[in-house]
Design a binder for these strands. Structure first.
Lengths: 218, 218
DNA sequence: TAGATTGTTAATCGATTAACAATC
DNA sequence: TAGATTGTTAATCGATTAACAATC
């Protein structure tokens, strides 16, 4: 009886943000190893590579299951795959990019060439863009049709690369249209309803942290 | 005697990354309040705005000094300024952008229009770029002249927006030329000597974390 | 089998929150 | 002055590290 409570608690205990932030990094290093043809790795060796303690690596992974084998280590292929599954990278996601300035273009490029689980279904901008009217199969449309497009096409993620002042209104629009995730590149913390996931890429905050650490240096 | 040890320890104790990451965010909210003409704010009210506990806000700030006034709260102007000082935003920084693809262009735009403490002194790319030969006063040059430029101009920060494969070699180049900080946009963890600060903007990791949180939702 | 290395529990460390005396 | 709110100490909570039994 006590054991069952323990198991239940584990299953329901929600994983801390710190752990989740480390998962893509593990996966990245495993991908590199894979490319080098490495077949297995121990938490100790991975630790030296990635810079977390072996203990932390094992703890992190065991939040989700036992992926290793005693006396052997972890299969690189298998662990790469499993971390992908944990992250939800066994699915594909339909995206819209909202704001097709240089940053929007950069992200469109990046996603199509490097993130094969993420498909750009549409690109939106206030301006009707003349040249480059289609981006590798994705339509480029004006913002007026955004809500409709998201709802009709069942878009999962909106990439917000508009000027900061327009970020919230875009978020409201896509939220009402049923978006499930927002990838926010503006220097604004969006106000979102429950059930909409959001990841912020606050470049400004990052730059200011860099300035801080540069002082420390000298 | 015991007290002095206490004081010394405080002065030398290094502030945790978690605290530093929150500082730009505090400053951002204070900037917003400033624009709205708000003159003072209590840790309680700031807490409601920003989503950290009042206790945490006071703890964070008191790592660096007592910026408030009992019974009153914090002066918005003064605290904004002080956090800027803590972050090192009372100085200006000379930058180079290395890699002038769409992402490099986006960051050049962003920095010149929003980050007035950061000056782009030069932009570098493998290709000799014909049109747009100068970017608001910054020269656009080929990578061959990068090392020389960094050393001669006394560049503080290199913004690395090249393809991942070239990130480390660029880092080595600017490091040898005496750079003090690197703002890294590639999906690579750079190997850097002591004394060079680095901030990573790993968009891929961010996107994969988003995928994770979307599962949770539904 | 013996050696290696995991999975997991226990110990430690650090960060967050609570509480309250100091003081504006 | 009385009320408000900080600065700071103490308590709590959570995350990381250490240790080791399980086991391949």
């Amino acid at each position: 009886m006590r054991e069952m409570v323990g198991i239940k608690e584990r299953a329901e205990r929600q994983i801390s943000k710190a752990v989740i932030k480390r998962l893509p990094r593990y996966r990245r290093y495993l991908g590199d190893l894979q490319k080098k043809g490495v077949e297995k790795i121990s938490s100790k060796d991975l630790s030296e590579l990635i810079g977390y303690t072996a203990s932390q690596i094992r703890q992190d992974l065991n939040n989700f299951g036992g992926f290793g084998q005693q006396g052997y280590g972890y299969s690189v292929d298998y662990l790469y795959e499993e971390i992908g599954n944990i992250l939800g990278l066994n699915k594909t996601y339909k995206m819209v990019i909202v704001g097709y300035g240089r940053l929007g273009q950069a992200m469109a490029n990046y996603i199509t060439s490097h993130e094969h689980n993420f498909k750009i279904a549409g690109i939106f901008d206030v301006k009707q863009i003349i040249q480059d009217v289609e981006f590798k199969g994705a339509e480029i449309l004006t913002c007026g049709s955004l809500a409709n497009f998201v709802a009709k096409e069942g878009i999962d993620i909106a990439v917000i690369t508009v000027p900061a002042e327009k970020a919230q209104i875009v978020a409201d629009t896509v939220t009402r249209a049923g978006i499930r995730g927002i990838w926010n590149f503006t220097a604004v913390d969006l106000d979102l309803p429950e059930g909409v996931a959001c990841e912020d890429v606050h470049v400004s905050d990052s730059l200011h942290a860099l300035a801080y650490y540069m002082q420390d240096m000298k």
